[in-house]
């Protein structure tokens, strides 16, 4: 393809993309979104964008962890829960402080402060998890690594959920909105500023993360470790540190998603289950370890759930996606965007 002139090179790439599974599914999703938007009004699109960005963010962390450390994290939703919890307590204490000493700038910045606090808590929790648990396992044995790690994350999930229950109780700890301002209007759809901020934040984080992975030396090191661990070790990369970092970033993203969605998901022990399921749906659809595909997958799953909820009814949003995922798996076992996962015949 290199010999061809630039224009036909681009055209050829486009043709390749349109006929690939990724291209077809994105086009089908876009068509479905347009049709439902025509039928039901544009709020479908807005809803999809708000939740899809966050599911993409969560799934990206999950995919990163799988790519770098081969850990399929079942406790990912619990870091989301941690994010909601930290954001709630930070925001509550700032609100209490504001009642005594009103200050408009602090009131404007309070939600951002709470979300940053949540992300920071997620980062710290990620580092601690890696140091306390996975580093120990890495030192001991690499046999059956994927399964052992999965079970450990199961244990982590149980511990975190029940610690939450034991320490702060099972009550719903939520807020109605971060910013007490009237909703903004986009395409004639009223959307609360919180939702708008959450989706913009997701976009910003995704772009920053992409730039970080693409252009910084540490990002390159992370990608190197995810491609070949021993090769990275030979090239002088400190694999242990990179893995700790990946764990921290992954958990930090989940906690950030939790913090910024606090108005939708009040903090209670099992709040993480729904985000967990959704990010796993995404991972399955796009294929394991595919970090950038996770974003498109996030929108895809969000759209699917919004459509299911609109046309079939509340509560069916797990049944229909599962059937679709079954179809996808039958047709393409490696996920829509393709990755390391293969069938047993081509292992």
């Amino acid at each position: 393809m290199d010999r061809l002139p630039f224009r036909s090179r681009v055209l050829a790439r486009f043709r390749l993309w349109f006929t690939s599974a990724a291209g077809i599914s994105i086009i089908v999703a876009a068509l479905a979104a347009t049709l439902t938007a025509i039928d039901q009004g544009p709020y479908i699109l807005v809803n999809t964008f708000v939740t899809g960005g966050m599911w993409g963010l969560m799934a990206m962390g999950l995919a990163l962890l799988f790519g770098v450390m081969n850990i399929s994290n079942f406790a990912h939703g619990e870091y989301f829960m941690l994010g909601t919890l930290v954001a709630y307590y930070l925001f509550e204490s700032i609100t209490k402080y504001l009642i005594r000493t009103p200050n408009s700038i602090v009131a404007l910045l309070a939600p951002i402060f709470a979300i940053c606090g949540a992300a920071l808590a997620g980062l710290i929790a990620g580092v601690m998890t890696d140091k306390i648990v996975f580093l120990q396992l890495r030192k001991r044995s690499r046999e059956e690594w994927i399964m052992n790690c999965f079970l450990i994350t199961l244990g982590l999930s149980v511990i975190l959920i029940n610690t939450h229950q034991l320490v702060v109780g099972t009550s719903y700890k939520g807020i109605t909105q971060y910013w007490e301002v009237p909703p903004a209007s986009i395409f004639g759809v009223y959307i609360s500023v919180d939702r708008l901020f959450a989706s913009i934040l997701a976009g910003i984080i995704i772009v920053i993360f992409w730039l970080y992975m693409k252009f910084t030396r540490i990002g390159q090191a992370i990608r190197a470790v995810s491609q070949d661990e021993s090769g990275a070790l030979m090239a002088g990369i400190s694999v242990n540190k990179i893995q700790t970092l990946a764990m921290a970033i992954s958990c930090g993203m989940a906690a950030l998603a939790g913090g910024s969605l606090l108005f939708m998901y009040p903090s209670y022990p099992t709040v993480g289950l729904e985000p967990l399921y959704n990010s796993w749906f995404v991972i399955i659809v796009v294929g394991f370890g595919n970090v950038m595909g996770a974003i498109a997958g996030g929108f895809f799953i969000a759209l699917l759930q919004v459509i299911t909820r609109t046309y079939v009814g509340e509560g069916w949003e797990y049944v229909i996606p599962v059937m679709l995922i079954a179809l996808i798996l039958i047709l393409r076992p490696s996920g829509v965007f393709g990755s390391k996962v293969r069938g047993i015949w081509e292992q």
């Binding site: 994927i146 796993w280 995922i325 798996l329 996962v341 293969r342 292992q347």
Partner: peptide, 13 residues
């Protein structure tokens, strides 16, 4: 037909 991890996810779903 798939590998262990995918089977696990699928049966989960």
């Amino acid at each position: 037909r798939l590998r262990g991890m995918m089977i696990m996810c699928f049966t989960w779903f």
